[in-house]
Structure formats: C-alpha cells, structure tokens
Nucleic acid binder design. Structure first.
Lengths: 249, 249
DNA sequence: TCGTTTATGTCGGAG
DNA sequence: CTCCGACGTAAACGA
C-alpha cells in the first residue's frame, strides 16, 4: 500500500500516527510561517491534532489543534499533508520529502490525570483556613465571584469589622499585572456597592516582584505570603487532599 | 541489547528517541501529578527535552523542558525513565510497563523558521506609516521604549502639537488588561516628565472587547483599529517584507 | 460564540 | 539569576 493510502486509512481509523520525515512546512492563518527542509517528528492524533517537533526544543515548531481536518495528497513521488481549520481559515501544509519512519496504531489511554498544586488548591486552603494563611478571621462571601464584565474575583471575604475583603491568589510570584488585576476588581466592587462600605484588597502569593510591592503600597492594597506547601498541610488536615498526594517531599 | 542500554546509549549519543509505551507517570515540582496506566508517545530530544503525549489533545500530558537530566533505571523487567531539573527540584518519572514501539536516530534539522504576523510586524508598520494606521502624522521618539521598572512602551511618538503619544500595540483583540497596561505606561511617563507636557495614549488593535472600550473612555485613553493585512501591505510597499511572505491569501 | 483567567505555561530579552 | 511581556499561546469555564 502506498504512503498516501496508509496515511488516509490511518487517519480515517483514528489511529495515532507518528512520522519521522524530511519535510518543509508552511502555515497560514492568524500569522504565517515557513520552515525549510529538515528532519522532524510529525504526530497525528485521533482527535485531529497535528503536532510537528524539531529534534530540539520543548515547543512544536508547527501544529494544528484537535478538530482540524486532515487530508493527504499525492505529490511528486511523496505526499503532502494538509491540516485545516476552516472556521478560522487556518492551514498548515507539510510537504513530505522523505519518510524515514512510519508508525500507526490505535492507542488505548483512558487513565485519569490528577494534578495537585494549581491556583484552585491554594485558593481552597485560604478559604478553609484564612487565619493561618492570611492572618485573620474572615467570613466567606464567595469564591470565583463574578463581577460581570470585570471578570472574577478569586475570593471575597467579610472581615470582623464588616468590611469586604477581595483576595487575588497567585500560585507563584505575583507581578505588577496581578496587582492591577486586583485593583480592577476592588474598583468594580467599590463602584457597585454602597459608598460607606469599606472594601479591602489582598494579593496572596508565595512571592512578589519589587515593583508589585511598590504599586501595592501606592494603591493602598495589602499583600500576604502564602505557599503551596502550607496549603497542602491544610488540605490534608481537613481531608481535602486526594490520597495519592499525601506522601510528597 | 536491552531496552535500558538502548535508551542510555541513545540519550548519550544525543539521538532523538520515540517510544510508544504503556506506562504510568508521576511528576513532582512546581506542582504534582499522577497519571495512571495507558498508552502514550514519549519523545526524548537531543537537548534533553522529554515530552509525553496521550493519543488525544494538543498539549503534552507530562514533560520536562530542554536541559533536563535523563536517567534510565532497570525496573521489574522493564524500565524507568527519570527526567530531572535539579535547580528547581523538578522530577518526572515514567514507569514503562510495555514498550510497543521504539525509534532512535540522530535527526538533521538546521533549517530556519520564519514567521510573519507577530506584534513586532504590526508595530513596524505603524512606525513606518502612522498616517494610514493611526490617522495622523506622528514623529517617532522611540520604540520598545524602556520605562525602567515599569516595562516597555511599544511606541512613543510626538504629535503635531508637540504632545507625547504612547502607543500600545496588540496583534489581536485588545482586552481590559491591555488598557491597564497602556495606562501604566502613560502614568509612568507622566510622573517622569514635566507637568506641562501633555501625554496622550493610544491602544492600537484589530478589535477591542466592549469592556476595554468602556475603560478606555473612562480613563481618557484613545484607540485605533489596525490590522495585520494592512500592515503587510505597508511593509511590502516599503520593502520590509521578506520575499517568502509576498504571495499570501 | 465571545470574554476572562490560568498554566508545571514556554520563550526571549534586558538588567 | 529575576523581571517583563508576547504567544498562531491552549484549555477551562461562564454568559
């Protein structure tokens, strides 16, 4: 069977295809790119994702995400792979010059992927134990608190004086853009609620860039150091940590 | 030769390795993750990047970027692949249960990758032809204009009245955070220069979210519609467009 | 669909 | 190293 037919059949059967090939690639869509001849790894997945890797670097050099329409054309002795996203007029063309390796098979992978340590986990720990994370007793008003067009406030608390406290959580170093994000939220809330209600703002992160701290102070916003290790302890204590993440370093 | 030895030799020789294997994966570092048994594609690149793909989705399920230290251990009849980044205490462990496919070869790929249509290209077109992009004659003061700790203003112009004009360029829809980014820059410049100098601010993008426009107006900032198609025409006219991007749709 | 936010983001550039 | 901003960001989630 010819390569063209092999590829067509593999794609139709929703196999996962791996090609190692000397090829050139053009892309046209949101931007445009050209890649001259060289040896690359081409992955074609069952969901229509096409990913081209050079022999170096983490990121693919060219790609189409899942859902793209893949066609294979005969071309000067070898073949041409076209991956299209018609909705957004995006096209990637791979001219295969020489196929050095071909693999095609239906792969079985139904396992669940579990992750711990994202922003949501840190947020949860702060909600469950504001005293040990933010240093004061706070009553939860809401989390992922919708501010309409202004986005979402990570957490909204009420403090012991009855003031609103808006908290923006970052899982790693908070920079100046995090500060402005928080500022946007308090300003929106201040505009929306009664004038006599005080609205505080806290940026909670394991670390802060120097400029972030300058702007926080200038804007009259507060900040607290929180980190994932502590969050893990809290969640474990409260029984909110999946068992496979109990024994980490 | 055993799989362990094959892998070790391939890695040492800086081959590109492709494995298709039933495996489990754990990761611990900036976050933690567990992935149960299933069939995946594992890429090991000459620069130490390790990338694991499931048979679906664009993004790798687990990875380590270039420069990681890769070791191979014998383990219950099969083997264990460990990719380490010691500086940041990051570790990915792949337990290979059954290797369905193995490929290893030195790949040659020295071709250059050319892209057109990034923010820089749009910026260049605005600088070369402010009249047709921003609608007025402007004299260039600087681009990638350093504001010290506050970052960089994309372009700074002087208008016919002698006012400074700060321009922030976005290659796609500008949202509210772009507006605040621009606001940050003008405020910095206003703080730094004489009080009597007027500083205007323009957000230039192909599209604006409704909220972005509301905030622009509220903050007294201007905005102009610019797009890459027009930019391409300008750059082609002025001879600033690489020839391989001349005949696009 | 658009708009907003997160990401083990990655990558590149400047200090 | 850190800080900053772009990315064909992708992916998730809500309106």
């Amino acid at each position: 069977m010819s390569l063209v037919e092999e590829l067509r059949q593999s794609i139709q059967r929703k196999n996962t295809v791996i090609l190692v090939a000397r090829c050139t690639i053009t892309y046209e869509g949101r931007a445009s790119s050209k890649l001259g001849e060289g040896e690359r790894i081409i992955l074609i997945k069952e969901d229509g994702a096409v990913i081209v890797h050079r022999p170096f670097s983490y990121e693919p050099v060219n790609y189409q995400p899942p859902g793209s329409i893949i066609t294979v054309e005969e071309a000067e002795g070898s073949c041409r792979l076209i991956a299209l996203r018609p909705r957004i007029h995006e096209k990637m063309v791979i001219e295969l010059k020489e196929v050095k390796h071909f693999f095609s098979s239906r792969l079985e992978d139904r396992a669940e992927f579990h992750m711990w340590g994202d922003e949501q986990d840190l947020r949860q720990a702060i909600i469950l134990d504001p005293v040990s994370t933010l240093g004061e007793e706070l009553e939860l008003v809401g989390s992922e608190f919708s501010l309409g067009s202004a986005g979402y406030a990570d957490i909204v608390f009420r403090d012991k004086e009855g003031n609103l406290v808006v908290v923006e959580v970052k899982r790693k170093t908070a920079d100046v853009s995090s500060v402005y994000q928080l500022k946007r939220y308090v300003e929106k809330i201040r505009r929306e609620c009664e004038k006599n209600l005080k609205v505080r703002a806290i940026l909670a992160a394991p670390k802060f860039t120097p400029v972030a701290i300058v702007v926080l102070k200038r804007e009259g916003l507060e900040y607290r150091e929180v980190n994932l290790q502590h969050a893990r302890k809290i969640l474990k204590q409260k029984g909110n940590l999946p068992s496979f993440f109990h024994e980490l370093a």
